[in-house]
Simulated scan of single mutants.
Amino acid sequence: MNFVQPIRDPELIREIKRFLREDSERNYMLFVTGINSGLRISDILQLRVSDAKKPYFNIIEQKTQKKKRIEMTPGLRKEFKDYIERREDHEFLFKSREGVNKPITRSMAYKILRRAADQVDLDDIGTHTLRKTFGYHFYKQYKNVAILQKIFNHSDPKVTLGYIGIDQDEMDRAMKGFKI
């Protein structure tokens, strides 16, 4: 399994959004949902239209089987408003073109993200990049590792900081300034 990084540069996020919006509304919304919710891809792919009508996601995590309630950001709620307008409550938000009402697969989500990353020459990208990108920018904005640790259901703040790449940033900064 490859180690993936968050997308640290806001301009790269904007470029990916632009590319995905032109490519496919579904793919754009998949990306926007991931970077604005901190949910794992396995949980995002199970979301239905009815889930996007509330101001929060109320889910049972696929990985942990724990109940989780995540407030939707105002920006994400606004994006969903148009996206779900003509859709039925029972439909998956990120429907596959295969079958009647099935979500895209995890591997298809990976291909979507990989294609977008290739457009902006970005490496170390995977489906977990969405969750890590959310965490990285949440931490940079609020500097509150305790809340982020709860959102991610991590056991220790050090795990959370390592997970979102803050440790890597600090190591990179230290190495750039190191002299003998």
Rank of each mutant, 00 (worst) to 15 (best):
M1W: 10
F3A: 08
Q5S: 14
I7M: 01
I7V: 15
R8K: 14
R8A: 11
P10F: 01
I13E: 05
I13V: 15
E15P: 03
I16A: 01
R18Y: 14
F19N: 02
E22D: 13
S24E: 06
E25S: 11
R26M: 06
R26G: 05
R26D: 05
L30I: 06
F31T: 05
V32E: 01
V32Y: 13
G34R: 04
S37A: 02
L39T: 12
I41D: 02
I44F: 03
L47T: 07
V49D: 01
V49L: 04
S50G: 00
D51C: 06
A52Q: 04
A52E: 05
K53T: 13
K54W: 10
F57R: 00
N58K: 07
E61R: 13
E61S: 09
Q65N: 12
Q65C: 07
K66S: 12
K67E: 15
R69I: 15
I70M: 10
T73Q: 04
G75Q: 11
G75R: 09
L76N: 09
K78E: 14
E79D: 13
K81D: 07
R87M: 12
R87Q: 10
F92R: 00
R97T: 14
E98Y: 14
G99I: 12
P103A: 01
R106L: 08
R106N: 11
R106G: 01
Y110F: 15
K111D: 14
I112E: 01
I112F: 11
I112R: 01
R114Q: 15
A117L: 04
Q119N: 10
D121K: 09
L122R: 13
L122E: 10
D123C: 00
D123K: 14
D123V: 09
T127S: 07
L130Q: 05
K132V: 11
K132G: 10
F138Q: 02
Y142W: 13
K143G: 06
N144K: 05
N144H: 08
A146H: 11
A146I: 15
A146M: 12
I147S: 07
L148R: 01
K150S: 12
K150V: 09
S155N: 10
G162L: 07
G162Y: 10
Y163C: 03
I166T: 05
I166M: 08
D167G: 11
D169K: 03
D169V: 09
D172F: 09
M175Y: 09
K176R: 13
K179D: 13
